[in-house]
């Protein structure tokens, strides 16, 4: 009997070995560019598959997205793997994480010409190149919520029955963005602000997709997302009732970035891909794939809806260094003040 189970175990482990070896075997045919990104970018309905198709048409290579559960997850995965990472390029970190990512010493200089990049802010980083941007905002269904709050202050102190869903700043960039936003507006008093906001929060999700799904299913009145999210409903679903509430204090901005790893096994391909990011081949997939603003002027290729979307009067952003130096303390502060 022992013999038989041993045999079975051996067969099973051999099969498991075969399983992982199999994944390697494919790599021999074409050059493979491995890009770590977050799940919603690589999803079937995200920008990933279209970008992949467009890039593969010119590169004679196989672009492989490795989808991690969140953008914060990308960074911790890189820290876990260290110099042995299989990634060539990372796509999906944002301004709040740049300095921390740079401190790992894993990233290479980008050498990408960013002269045609058109961002509301100046971009100077040498390693990370922007691939899209947007503004965090609370999205609501105007058919159900007639009077949305007009400011962050109004959201916190106004209508006590309002229910919102937010994301965890430790795992999701919108969550992190909201934390920075609160910090930017309230500074030292942000702990109090969080305490007051707590009763309105239905749940704190790990990632954006779950939060947005819960919102669409009617679990809350508002959800933390982007000012550009209504474009999805207008373009893909022809529904006009979803709107982003514009707050008078201004909106925290997110610039999503990509970079090449020093240890990339395909550095030329990686460089090619980074250059591709700043072209219209990549950028034209952003508005209707990732539902964010492109970083270059697409001219007529930008869907009209995007031009019609309300833009915040004021955009808020911490410098990467400041974000890095305070992130941990601010997260601790958030953990201690939120009651969820």
């Amino acid at each position: 009997m022992i013999l038989r189970t041993t045999m079975a175990a051996l067969t099973a482990t051999t099969l498991a070995l075969g399983l992982s070896l199999n994944a390697q075997a494919q790599e021999q045919d074409k050059k493979i560019l491995t890009v770590y990104t977050y799940d919603s970018f690589a999803a079937d309905w995200g920008a990933g598959p279209k970008v992949e198709k467009a890039f593969e048409a010119s590169c004679n290579c196989d672009l492989k997205f490795v989808a991690l559960d969140s953008s914060v997850g990308i960074l911790s995965r890189l820290k876990l793997e260290g110099k042995d990472s299989t990634a060539d390029v990372v796509l999906g970190l944002d301004t709040n994480l740049i300095a921390e990512a740079a401190a790992t010493g894993l990233f290479a200089k980008s050498n990408v010409d960013l002269s045609n990049v058109d961002l509301p802010i100046d971009w100077k980083d040498e390693q990370f190149i922007p691939f899209d941007y947007g503004y965090f905002a609370f999205v609501y269904d105007s058919e159900k919520l007639a009077n949305p709050p007009s400011s962050l202050d109004n959201l916190i102190n106004g209508n006590p029955d309002l229910k919102i869903i937010i994301q965890d700043p430790r795992s999701s960039t919108p969550g992190l963005g909201l934390m920075m936003w609160m910090q930017n507006v309230y500074g030292d008093k942000s702990a109090d602000a969080w305490k007051k906001l707590s009763p309105k929060i239905v749940t704190v999700t790990k990632g954006w997709s779950e939060a947005y799904g819960l919102f669409l299913d009617g679990e809350a009145d508002m959800v933390l997302s982007y000012t550009t999210s209504p474009a999805y409903h207008i373009i893909a679903e022809e529904k006009k009732q979803y709107k982003a509430a514009i707050f008078s204090e201004g909106h925290y901005m997110q610039v999503e970035v990509a970079a090449q790893l020093k240890t990339a096994k395909e550095p030329e391909l990686a460089q090619e891909f980074l250059n591709f990011i700043a072209t219209s081949g990549f950028q034209s997939e952003i508005p209707t794939g990732n539902w964010m603003y492109p970083v270059i002027d697409l001219g007529k290729d930008l869907p009209g809806t995007f031009a019609e979307l309300p833009r915040p009067d004021k955009s808020l952003l911490f410098a990467p260094e400041e974000a890095k130096n305070n992130r941990q303390a601010w997260v601790d502060n958030w953990l201690n003040s939120i009651n969820h």
Binding site: V72, G73, S76, L80, D168, R170, S171, I201, V202, T203, V204, Q328, W334, L335, I338, N339, H340
Partner: peptide, 19 residues
């Protein structure tokens, strides 16, 4: 649903996965 209902096991997961 949020940090105040985290258990040790989840906090350990988060310490590794997030931070």
């Amino acid at each position: 649903g949020g940090p105040s209902t985290n258990t040790l096991e989840v906090a350990i997961y988060q310490a590794i996965r997030f931070d």
